[in-house]
Amino acid sequence: MKPQPPTPRPRPMRDALLERIAEAMDHDPALFFVSADFGSPVLDRIRARHPDRFVNVGIAEQNLINVSAGLALEGYTVFAYAIAPFLTMRCFEQIRVSLALLSTVRPMNVNLVGVGAGFSYVVSGPTHQCYEDLTLMRALPNMTVYSPADHATAAGLFDACVDRSGPKYLRLDAQPLPPLHPEAAPLPPGGFYTLRPGRDLCFVATGYMVHTALRVADRLEAEGIAAAVVDLFDLSGFDAAALCARMSASRAVVSLEEGFRGRGGLDALLFDLRARHALTQPMLNLGVEGGYRFELGSRQELHEQVSIGEQAVTARVRAFVGDRQQD
């Protein structure tokens, strides 16, 4: 990819990743793109230039996975593309059997690219929103799980998709988000960025919630609370020792995810990490609370309703830090 100057404008993650794929497909005949009737303007370029290696299976996610598995068994590096909840839940058993199980004994490279993390399909309601996918994909022991927070990270993940064998899930936001990281820079090998330091607490956030964590950290800073912010984009292959060191540099840890709280997502990952490494700081876990909802509102309003909005998080963290200070 040609180096490009940083662009400050918000961009959809999928555009950045699909541009990398489209460019690579021009010279790498081993790449194959399979869509479950889901598109984007950048995808049109792939369809037009590589009709032999682009297939739309229709609204058929089960077949999306099995066809992708077949292509991968024959040596193709496959990108399978669909709306995130349908890609991870409609065909979970195909993912388990034909990707996770089969790739244990046969070399395969299938990259599941799911668009629509959390509430990012804001007005489409809970069918199109996705709060369970991190839990489900994490449940598969050999599934690589990526959850970028901006388009630069999403684009950078392309290299890992091609270079690393095995099944992978990329959880992409559907909305354009402001850039957090320089474009075309290599991703940090530890699987996370530290966006700001802070000795009082350390936010470990993923995806869109990294942006929320940054805003909350600004608010808390004005109140004299120094909050670090970690953008954890690799939920399976991160450097555990480095992340533990980062977390231990703060007095407390706050996990923040756009998924159901306490159901096996980022919070479970951190609980396990904490237990394995005998970390002792207190931890607050924030995620979607209150179950399924059908209310309409802006993403920020919806987030406030389920306890992950900027105000809700600020209040919860403030109370958490205050409680700790009284101890």
Partner: peptide, 27 residues
Amino acid sequence: DPVIPGYETVNGSLGHGLGVGAGIALA
């Protein structure tokens, strides 16, 4: 299971063979 030499794919769970076979045939 495909740990057996000569078996290509996982089929203890039914209904996966035709889709995977179609993907192989496409490749």
